[in-house]
């Protein structure tokens, strides 16, 4: 927050000048923090506005204590999430709880090692694949018995060779259906909330291609600028 007025002053000047100013300032700041952020690699995305700089893309400071502790705790927490998911048939838990625990492990890692770094490590494709794949898998398991002449989710018609189709059909629904949906959607909510609302420099947004926000981004920029001016 200490450098907020400087960035603000840069942002209120000429548009391009302000952009350069803020970019330079951020680079100077980043000097002390090594290369944790990839931000210094793409200066053109910077706008110099207060909210986009200090709010939307929150800078990351590393904490040795949190990083070391998360390194120790997260494998156990992830394993326990897998246990809750896979052992839901014999103990409390199931896909929903296990998926939430596994997503919480990702939150933990993101808080320790930076949300941006986690976002690059866990690409959007993975998150979307989890959510969409889970939904499709659940629907497929449900509709397969219908195709074979039964009812929706009639497990005993599932063509499983050796295993008990009822038990393993339920486990499949819990594991590759519900757990995947919940963990994927929760991780997605985390990343999309961490990015914030429609900042110009905040990664790929709907932007120009979308008819809704056509011509709305200037208004957005104005709103942010007045907000910054009030400070």
């Amino acid at each position: 927050m200490s450098d907020a007025p400087d960035v603000d002053a840069g942002g209120r000047g000429d548009e391009s000048g302000g952009r350069d100013d803020a970019g330079g300032k951020r680079d100077a700041d980043d000097g002390g923090r090594d290369d944790d952020r990839s931000g210094s690699a793409d200066p053109p995305r910077r706008s110099g506005r207060l909210d986009s700089e200090t709010r939307q893309g929150t800078p990351y400071t590393e904490s040795q204590v949190i990083m070391s502790t998360v390194k120790v705790v997260s494998p156990f927490a992830f394993t326990y999430g897998l246990f809750v998911t896979f052992h839901g048939g014999g103990s409390p838990g199931g896909g929903f709880q296990g998926g939430a625990i596994m997503a919480a492990v990702v939150f933990m890692i993101a808080f320790a090692f930076g949300i941006e770094a986690t976002r690059q490590w866990l690409a959007n494709t993975v998150v979307v694949a989890l959510a969409v794949g889970g939904t499709l898998a659940f629907a497929a398991i449900g509709l397969l018995p219908v195709a074979l002449g039964g009812a929706f989710l009639q497990y005993d018609l599932l063509p499983l060779p050796i295993l008990d189709p009822v038990k393993y059909g339920m486990e499949a629904v819990e594991i590759i259906g519900i757990a995947a949906i919940v963990s994927g959607v929760l991780m997605g909510l985390f990343f999309v909330l961490a990015r914030g609302f429609n900042g110009e420099d905040s990664g790929p947004s709907i932007g120009e291609r979308d008819p809704f926000s056509d011509g709305e981004s200037p208004e957005d920029g104005d709103g942010v600028a007045t907000d910054g001016g009030e400070r």
């Binding site: 976002r119 959007n124 909510l189 990015r195 609302f197 990664g203 790929p204 947004s205 709907i206 926000s213």
Partner: peptide, 8 residues
């Protein structure tokens, strides 16, 4: 609501 196409 957040006007995005991707979770990132």
């Amino acid at each position: 609501v957040l006007r995005r196409e991707v979770f990132a």
